[in-house]
């Protein structure tokens, strides 16, 4: 079985409920949620003048190809009322594929592993919650090792 990981995020309205609705929608689309991280408060990325996010990483199992999975995630986003808007702007629900087993993909609208995963400490932290042993494709370090190494470089950032 391939290990597939998604990042869920919301920063408008009842964020916890939005995430729970997205999880239900995944189930209804025949996508099994195997593991869930906690939902964590994070700083908005890219565009800082907007509310914080609540983010969660989940491990799923499904029969879909990466392309099909992306289609389903986008359809859940649309269904839940996210209009195609500003990149990195506020959103009711955001669903991203972080990893699809050991596969790597480089297409215009679909890059796997997620191209910004390693830039985002919170994503690594959440991934470390549920999959510390996972070794991302092209890497020789597990998530846990990566997390431990990087956190020790100790630079402090401040957001909004």
């Amino acid at each position: 079985m391939e290990h597939i990981y998604l990042l869920l995020g919301s920063n408008i309205g009842n964020v916890r409920q939005n995430i729970d609705r997205a999880l239900t929608a995944l189930k209804h689309s025949n996508i099994k949620v195997l593991k869930k991280s906690t939902a964590r408060i994070t700083q908005p990325w890219g565009k800082a003048d907007q509310p914080d996010f609540l983010n969660m990483v989940v491990q799923i199992a499904c029969e879909y190809t990466p392309r099909e999975l992306l289609g389903i995630l986008k359809s859940i986003e649309r269904e839940m009322g996210r209009t195609v808007g500003e990149r990195w702007g506020p959103r009711i629900i955001d669903l991203d594929i972080l990893f699809y087993g050991s596969r790597t993909l480089q297409e215009d609208d679909l890059v796997i592993p997620h191209p910004h995963f390693f830039d985002r400490p919170f994503a690594v932290a959440l991934m470390n919650d549920i999959a510390p042993q996972f070794v991302p494709p092209g890497s020789d370090m597990s998530i846990a090792e990566y997390y431990r190494d990087r956190i020790h470089e100790r630079k402090t950032i401040h957001c909004h």
Partner: peptide
């Protein structure tokens, strides 16, 4: 020290502080 400084200078209603790489 860093945290004390944050407490003294915080102007926004909320702020997240974390270690970044």
């Amino acid at each position: 020290d860093l945290l004390c400084n944050e407490i003294k200078t915080l102007k926004e209603p909320r702020r997240i502080i974390s270690r970044q790489w």
